[in-house]
Design a protein around this nucleic acid. Structure first.
Lengths: 410, 410
DNA sequence: GCCGGTATGCTTGTGCCCACAACAAAGCCA
DNA sequence: TGGCTTTGTTGTGGGCACAAGCATACCGGC
């Protein structure tokens, strides 16, 4: 066997150091996703020894990642256990450029959205615009947040295809972007590590952690936006990424090979039928926001809209049945306009899926609307920025907000 | 937080013992999948220390799982490194009941098929028949194999839906089986641990390890059999199982919502069009085996068959494009009659997929015929039986073949 | 045929990490 | 106030991988 044949595909060996890292990561992740846990809870959850947990929590406190607070006043026998909570000083920046503007947010460890701003743009922004808007937001935020704040990084939710290997945008059709190395552009401007991912992929991460997918290991998330129908899948607790780091494109699953032409160049994609623009035109109006859409459906929207809702509900049911058949999901979460559609045509969709799903695969399927609503993208994007920290709490870099103010090229 | 809320979903902590187990598993898996490796290779592959690897290999030798042989006669400077090979004494039994009969095999650690028997049944067998045929095969084999042989267990490839959580068959339509606890039936008869899985799922495991998927982390396998179109997916090196342990059903992805009725009760599933029975009837003949099918395609099969091939090639291309779009696979492996179809209509299928695949997801896609041909099911089934051993070499039970002869209820 | 160079195996000592046990602390309850 | 229960703390021990140094085996040049 030549040396060239030896690659590391087989996987690397484990060391003692990794054990520590994994356990430390487990502690921080647990606190992160559950918000607050007593040390005794952590002991039970991890199966580790009390003494080990004590030491690990101590290390996290020393790293400034968690705080130990007074035991909760519970009526319980035995010595009360101090409660471990995420440090409020650790945050991530979440950015989401889209057609109408850029929404930006600050999310704390633990998933609480601290700040949220919507910056409207008169016309569709360029990547350079996005970088500048991000810089301005971060500078504004840096002045507002206390000096003790430390930033894990920036997570950007992109409405388009992202190559996660190169951390660049392959194509974002509705923004008209192509081959944009947005992450390095932001990093250069702000000296903060930046990660990109598809907005729907981030959606499923957020919903699985904090939303309608909590406690479920096999989640499919479908998100209907102006841009189209996106989605993400978590299978056995693990995010599906696909080979190229592009994530996956659920909206372009085939519904009808003889169907309408899709902007993607193929015919009969699911999103040619399940499409909010068709609702808009049935309603005889222009752009309708999500809240308005809910209001419209809740009122009497007229025969044309009702008919269109039926059409889309049926198509969505067939699409979901087809997808469940290949993913074996147990919970389907619908966000954006398909979430609104579920609200309006829940019975029809659920019955359609039950009728169409392949054998036992549809047996225990639940279909729900997403739980985080408009916060979903920010929480997902923040999760992206937190993931390095959560995987290796002792070594992941954190950036002082004071240094940030100084470091930015004004 | 109440105790009830504390489940182990967050994951368990790690101990030193697990580190050892993982490293031992890494050594054995490497030797298993590559056939033979020098100790120096193992050192490079694992990144572990020489002394650690030496100790680990020593432990595997002591467990009787590998052998250390003379260094390969290579013209190389430095001290030659002993070559580690899987022990020929460690085997698994692979069983595959199907409509025409039961094929059984003995597969050695390392993936070599030692023995293979096809036992034809005059009529479709019952689960009880399958158990008896399996018992007879194991007893015959036990007499032939040396006394030093040790068996890891029995893997059964089932043409149907298997619930891997309960290790029982949910439904195997073509065998007419339903809710059969085949694994425990065999275990009771033979006192050997038995695992069941879907035949196509096992196909992708085998092809990814030893066949056309070697060196690729994102593989999709489609297998066309008399029963229909099955498949399996490996994403980022991990088998997709789905929520219910049923695996996934690629043949029932939607092709055309206005299409023909599928036996599964839905309309327009891919396998209503991509279906070998349609070829048979176009050829005006009854059952055509795979070899005959290849021969038929290679000759001039007549206009009707040619037309049918075109139809199926186009439908297959659309199906693959749709599936690639949701899985982001980089290699598609076709087995059974769709493998033969690829041989006959390769250009058409590849062009169709390239045209239909969503954006960059189809960019570096390769479509190949399966490499293991008829051995694929056995290798996959054996892999199922080996997996416990490969995950924890020090603790997985192995069964003496002598004890087996005695223990079986004759 | 000898000797340096190189790659690998083997042995031993060290550090790291977790489990365990014993003890201390903090609350409940009678 | 004292027993009970639960939890934190501390010290000890065992398991594991690593580093360093030495031994071994082969190549190639002289």
């Amino acid at each position: 066997m030549s040396d060239d044949d030896v690659d590391d595909r087989v996987g690397r060996g484990s060391r003692n150091e990794e054990t520590r890292q994994r356990n430390l990561a487990l502690m921080l992740s647990s606190v992160h996703s559950r918000g607050s846990l007593s040390r005794a809870d952590l002991t039970r959850l991890s199966g580790l020894n009390r003494s080990t947990v004590g030491f690990l929590v101590g290390e996290l406190v020393e790293l400034g990642l968690v705080l130990e607070t007074e035991p909760a006043a519970e009526r319980r026998v035995g010595r009360p256990s101090p409660v471990v909570v995420p440090s409020p000083d650790v945050v991530a920046i979440a950015i989401n450029p889209d057609v109408t503007g850029l929404t930006a947010g600050v999310v704390g460890l633990g998933g609480a959205v601290r700040l949220r701003e919507v910056i409207l743009t008169p016309e569709i922004m360029t990547p350079e615009d996005a970088v500048l808007l991000t810089r301005d937001f971060v500078l504004r935020v840096a002045d507002e947040l206390p000096d003790t704040t430390r930033v894990a990084g920036i997570g950007v939710a992109v409405p388009g295809l992202v190559d996660e290997r190169t951390n660049a945008i392959d194509v974002a059709p509705h923004l008209g972007w192509q081959d944009e190395a947005l992450a390095s552009m932001i990093e250069e401007e702000l000296a903060l590590p930046t990660w990109l991912s598809n907005d729907s992929t981030l959606g499923v991460i957020a919903e699985a952690h904090y939303g309608a997918g909590v406690g479920c290991d096999n989640v499919m998330y479908l998100n209907g936006s102006t841009s189209g129908l996106g989605g993400g899948v978590i299978s056995e607790g693990r995010l599906m990424r696909g080979a190229h780091g592009f994530g996956i494109e659920l909206g372009h699953i085939l519904l009808d090979r003889n169907g309408a032409l899709c902007p993607c160049g193929r015919t009969g994609c699911l999103e040619t039928v399940v499409n909010v623009r068709r609702i808009w035109s049935a309603a005889g109006r222009g752009v309708i926001g999500l809240d308005e859409l809910d209001a419209l459906y809740a009122s009497a929207p007229g025969a044309e809209v009702e008919a269109e809702l039926d059409i889309q509900a049926d198509a969505l049911a067939e699409g979901i049945a087809s997808l469940v058949c290949v993913f074996g999901s147990e919970r389907v979460i619908l966000g954006g306009h398909v979430g609104a559609l579920l609200e309006a045509r829940g019975e029809r969709i659920r019955a359609g899926v039950a009728r169409q799903a392949y054998g036992p695969l549809g047996r225990d399927l639940t279909i729900v609307r997403n739980g985080l609503r408009e916060r979903v993208v920010h929480i997902g994007a923040a999760e992206l920025a937190f993931s390095t920290l959560l995987n290796d709490p002792a070594h992941a870099p954190l950036f002082d907000i004071a240094g940030l103010r100084a470091g930015v090229r004004r």
